[in-house]
Design a protein around this nucleic acid. Structure first.
Length: 802
RNA sequence: GCCCAGGUGGUGGAAUUGGUAUACACGCCAGUCUUAGGAACUGGUAGAGCAAUCUGUGGAGGUUCGAGUCCUCUCCUGGGCACCA
């Protein structure tokens, strides 16, 4: 009989489901394998999506064979813009679109034979789920970690709508091409910076097994810096500005100061500014630019001097000019900087444009050419002359603190998390605004605050969420005083539901609490988390932040959610570009599975190359692994069923070497070499006319995590086992059997290979040396030369140095 | 500009601690079988050379008995962050 994937794959998928192979939770040892759950888009999966899921499935099945209970769930991160845009266009509820997309995804995923426990399927848009997303928000609000603030959004004045960064094209509205403005909106913000230190330090924790690459990216994103904040007085005024710097040692080199266009001081001292109209114009223009524009372009630095205003350097008492310039950002630090052109590149460039003084205060560079930004020895700095930068920073910070005009301060690049969206398709924020009581949390027992049906999903035109137009929903009573009040109409960002979903899988039906304490202890932390590197900073930081908060309020027992994190490399299209409808280069997994079978698909994606590296898809490549499975299938014909023990030392040795290698490779995510090792074994087995049942059974077992359907078919139907192969055990590696009787020793002369010798495994160094020197091929090079040295590497080589 | 990965046959890639460069697979070439082949099987396949041999892991140096692997410089590609004070 021929190997026909079509005939066996469905059958075993149903069998596993019926026998509960994917929900065998009663074992002592636990393993929690998690995939980053997908956003179900309308177009369905392409072959790139399942790569990570296949890997977690291989590991899950491998862990089952090693006696673990494995939790391997799947769900849907289903709030988000595409569904909302579809709803606007078709005037239909995004629910409908979402449900349809989920059905498509699920059907596609089911073809792969994953061990998902679908009883635990979750959906972030399900009120029973987002009830708890809202609950977490309430807790954050109660603890003072959620606050209201004005934060700018990208605003298209012609569409009268807020835009996501994705909707922008070179700073213009993607739809109508108008210039996008920054419009301040009332927003909910989460005080993530309060957790900055813990988020940073726990990255180095012993029980975190993350790739360096991702750890590094998070560290840079958090961006901790130690410096000082001090005040600079405005001359002839009570007003002052606060500046922050990590290079207080360069303070004697200040030749001017700069404030961001949005800095409040400008408004306060406007009657002092003699060129105010010019300044006002500059600010207006700056506000039109998006943050991206202001920060991204390698553009010329612009700015306007505030005429009539001077500030005072507290160290030198020198009087210097003040500028407004958009290279200083309002949202970072204090929104004002002391400018030291000699020792800061941006200040240098700005000073050059404006013709400002450059004073060298740290030795080491040629400041007539460019800024010297490294540490050095101080000059032109009065009593601090001769100190190193490091010493000066200490002394100067001491002085500022003593004088009471500054203090040491730790700063973070990371900002608080703007947590509201003016959209329909998101979790309603469970807050009620009362004129008397202010913002009041919706009482817990009234959760979830469900999304009401609306007729129109279009934006309101004021920038508010479409929910603002549903008066019967908005108007309510204050839970505190009973007076009339209004509901919050902002909704949560997509990141909300995905920041805690791994906890819900553990206890998906619990309507009393987010997760039961016992189950949480049983499964957390997640042992293995696999997903794309694009989530290295945002999703993974948000989830860690919420997890730490949940730890603080006693909901979870671990400080970190994900023990091991591995990132999956992209699958590019055959033309080397990203797979996209736009390039018409998308490969659909349904077609691949129909032609080659799910096992070939799984095997191929694991064989393509190193797991975390991006690789181009090749349909021709799938044929290769299919051929391999065909060979495995055909080996059945060589099994001696009632054998009186076929002993084949060579095959037995290779089998055991392969067992070891495949096991180690799975643990280390080196699936490609695991598969090539199995190919080598199968090629060797093909050369034998007879094979023992044992060796074949071992091959099938180690293959089963990768190609579960064909393995189960052979295991039960051909080898006559009565139970699933996934209730069997991973084979024991036998070092005695694996040992070779003979080995090849390479003989080199001056590092060049001249001869290869087959010798017995127990031969001594002297014996090898003797044989080598007698070899004709070696003699050609050694004849008449003096042998200076002979280097011997046991089991590998002999190098004769002449 | 900064940070992180990478650069190995025609292609994807392998090489665990510095020890046989190119495993495994694709593709290609030749052959066997076949009415036929986009099937199966066998053999070949880094380059040059009849050969012995020589040259080869982006480039240039270096350390070493020995370097894809370590060091210095340099070029290129991909990804991330970006006027972060």
């Amino acid at each position: 009989m021929k190997y026909e994937p079509k005939n066996i794959e469905k059958k075993w998928q149903q069998y596993w489901e019926e026998k509960g192979i994917n929900k065998n939770y009663s074992r002592e040892k636990k393993f929690y394998a998690l995939d980053m759950f997908p956003y179900p888009s309308g177009v369905g999966l392409h072959v790139g999506h399942p790569k990570g899921y296949i890997a977690t499935d291989v590991v899950s099945r491998f862990k089952m064979l090693n006696g673990f209970s494995v939790l391997h769930p799947m769900g849907w991160d289903a709030f988000g813009l595409p569904a909302e845009n579809y709803a606007i266009k078709n005037k239909s509820n995004p629910n409908v679109f979402t449900a349809k997309s989920i059905a498509t995804y699920k059907k596609q995923l089911e073809m792969f034979g994953f061990t998902y426990d679908w009883d635990r399927e979750i959906n972030t848009t399900d009120p029973e789920y987002y009830k708890w997303t809202q609950w977490i928000f309430l807790k954050l609000f109660e603890k003072g970690l959620a606050y209201e603030s004005n934060a700018p959004i990208n605003w298209c004045p012609s569409c009268k709508t807020g835009l996501s960064n994705e909707d922008l094209e070179n700073g213009k509205c993607e739809r109508c091409g108008s210039d996008v403005e920054q419009k301040p909106m009332r927003q909910w913000v989460l005080k993530m910076t309060e957790y900055a230190d813990r988020l940073l330090y726990d990255l180095d924790s012993q029980d975190l097994d993350w790739e360096d690459m991702i750890v590094q990216q998070q560290k840079n994103w958090i961006g901790r810096s130690e410096g000082v904040q001090f005040e600079i007085k405005i001359k002839d005024s009570e007003e002052k500005i606060e500046v922050y710097t990590t290079r207080i040692d360069t303070v004697f080199g200040i030749t001017y100061a700069v404030v961001a266009p949005e800095h409040e001081i400008i408004e306060k001292i406007k009657e002092k500014i003699s060129n105010y109209s010019e300044v006002e114009k500059y600010i207006e223009d700056a506000n039109k630019k998006t943050n991206l524009e202001r920060t991204e372009l390698q553009k010329e630095k612009t700015g306007v001097k505030l005429e009539g205003v001077k500030v005072v350097n507290p160290f030198t008492k020198e009087v210097i000019p003040l500028f407004v310039a958009d290279y200083v950002l309002g949202g970072y630090g204090t929104g004002a900087v002391m400018a030291v052109p000699a020792h800061d590149e941006r200040d240098f460039e700005f000073a050059f444009k404006q013709g400002l003084d450059v004073i060298e205060v740290v030795l080491g560079g040629i400041i007539s050419e460019k800024a010297f930004t490294e540490d050095g020895i101080l000059i032109n700095s009065d009593k601090y002359d001769g100190l190193t930068s490091e010493q000066a920073r200490e002394k100067m910070a001491d002085w500022l603190e003593k004088e009471g005009i500054g203090k040491r301060k730790v700063n973070y690049k990371m900002r608080d998390w703007v947590y509201s969206r003016q959209r329909y398709w998101g979790e309603p924020i469970p807050i009620i605004h009362c004129e008397k009581c202010g913002a009041v949390g919706v009482p817990e027992e009234q959760l979830p605050v469900t999304l009401p049906d609306v007729e129109n999903y279009e934006p309101t035109g004021t920038g508010e969420s479409p929910l603002a137009n549903i008066h019967e929903w908005v108007n309510t009573t204050c839970p505190k005083c009973g007076g009339s009040a209004k509901r919050e109409t902002n909704t949560m960002p997509q990141w909300g539901g995905s920041s805690w979903y791994y906890l819900r899988y553990i206890d998906p039906k619990n309507d009393k609490e987010l997760v039961s304490k016992e189950l949480e202890k049983e499964w957390m932390p997640v042992d293995l988390y696999v997903g794309g590197a694009e989530h290295a900073t945002r999703h993974l930081l948000y989830a860690r932040f919420w997890h730490k908060f949940l730890y603080d309020i006693g909901v979870v027992s671990t400080t970190e959610p994900f023990k091991k994190l591995v990132h999956v490399g992209l699958i590019m299209a055959e033309d080397g570009r990203k797979m996209s409808k736009r390039w018409n280069n998308v490969v659909n997994p349904d077609d691949v599975i129909a032609e080659f079978g799910a096992d070939s698909m799984r095997l191929y994606e694991m064989f393509m190359g190193p797991f975390s590296q991006s690789v181009a898809w090749s349909t021709a490549g799938v044929k290769g692994v299919r051929k391999f499975l065909d060979k495995v299938w055909k080996l059945q014909g060589r099994i001696m069923n009632h054998e009186s023990g076929i002993k084949n030392k060579k095959i037995d040795s290779l089998v055991h070497k392969t067992i070891k290698k495949v096991g180690e490779d799975i643990e280390n995510f080196r699936f490609n070499t695991a598969i090539s090792a199995m190919m080598i074994l199968v090629n060797a087995m093909e050369k034998e006319s007879q094979l023992s049942v044992t060796s074949y059974e071992l091959l099938i077992t180690i293959l089963s995590p990768f190609a579960p359907h064909i393995a189960e078919e052979i295991w039960q139907e051909k080898l006559g086992n009565k139970q699933s192969i996934f209730l069997a055990s991973w084979p024991q590696f036998d070092a005695d059997l694996a040992r070779d009787e003979e080995m090849e020793i390479v003989v080199q002369v001056n590092g060049k290979v001249r001869e290869r010798l087959m010798v017995a495994a127990d031969v001594t160094e002297d014996e090898i040396k003797e044989t080598a020197l007698e070899s004709e091929k070696v003699k050609v090079f050694t004849e008449g030369k003096e042998i200076k040295k002979v280097i011997f590497v046991p089991g590998k080589l002999l190098n004769i140095v002449i």
